[in-house]
Amino acid sequence: MTRYDKRFWFLAAGVSSIAGYVDATGFLKLGGLFVSFMSGNSTRLAVGTMMDPQVSIVAGRLIGGFVAGVVAGTIVAALAGSRRKPATLGFVSALLVVAAVINTNVSDVWTTTVMAVAMGSANAIFQRDGEVTIGVTYMTGTLVKFGQRIAGALMGGAPFAWLPYLLLWLGLVGGAVLGTTAYVYFRSANIWLAVAASGLLALYATVLGPVEPAAGRVK
């Protein structure tokens, strides 16, 4: 992540904020399952096979939706070429529109499955040579790198290399707080706010243009 221009740090943090916002909404709607955190859903699926098969089924559906989103987002990004960031964000926005529209007409399970597809697609926004360079919907790797960069700074390395990883994590947590607050006041209608935010980020990505890191694997 540190090899990206600083303008892209804010784009990544913005996408992570949307992921936190949407994930909090899904968590509240489903009572403890996630639309972007598939490690948690994998554990719930495993435990549910013995303790609560219905939870296991829903968790499996969310995982399948997320993987389908990764596939679809990767295809969209590949077809868009150098404009993959705004194109993929536009695709994420369209999926969130679908989730918002069907939200009042179908069960929460299907609404949140579409939300999971959108979150899977979001991971195609930052990639290079077919590999994800910044994971915007999951934070375990980000926190590991955050800790590693702090250790590096303490041992005489770059003093602020940890900053973009902190920004990414704060984006997700802040988005989750906003998503929870919006859900309390607007209930599931708050999905439309995620649509608006995603659309604005698509415009921002268009303004940024197709600038990429000069070379090498993005860390």
Rank of each mutant, 00 (worst) to 15 (best):
S82H: 10
W9R: 07
Q148R: 10
V47L: 12
V207P: 06
A124L: 09
A72C: 07
T43I: 13
A68R: 10
V184Y: 12
R128C: 08
Y183A: 02
N123G: 12
K145S: 15
G216Q: 10
A215D: 08
G14Y: 03
L178D: 07
T2L: 12
S36F: 00
V98N: 00
G14I: 01
S198N: 02
D108R: 03
M155N: 13
A19D: 00
A194Y: 07
A59P: 07
Y21T: 02
V173Y: 06
G209C: 09
F66M: 05
V35K: 04
P53F: 02
A77C: 04
L163E: 06
E131M: 13
L33A: 05
G90V: 03
R217N: 13
S188I: 05
L45E: 00
S188V: 10
G65S: 03
T180I: 11
G130M: 14
V109G: 02
G199H: 01
L62H: 04
A87C: 05
M50T: 10
K29H: 05
E212H: 11
Y4D: 04
L79D: 04
G32F: 00
F8D: 12
L30P: 08
G14Q: 02
M119K: 12
S121F: 06
F37W: 04
A197R: 07
G81E: 05
W162Q: 01
L11K: 02
G69F: 06
L167E: 11
A72T: 09
G20S: 09
S188D: 13
F91L: 03
M119I: 12
G90S: 02
V136L: 14
L89A: 10
L79G: 02
L96R: 09
L96H: 07
R187P: 01
A19V: 00
L178K: 08
A77G: 08
A158H: 15
M50K: 07
A122L: 12
L200R: 03
N105R: 14
D108N: 11
K145N: 15
G156F: 10
I102D: 05
G81W: 06
V218Q: 11
G130F: 13
Q148S: 13
Y183Q: 04
T112D: 01
S39C: 10
T180R: 14
Y183N: 03
P210F: 06
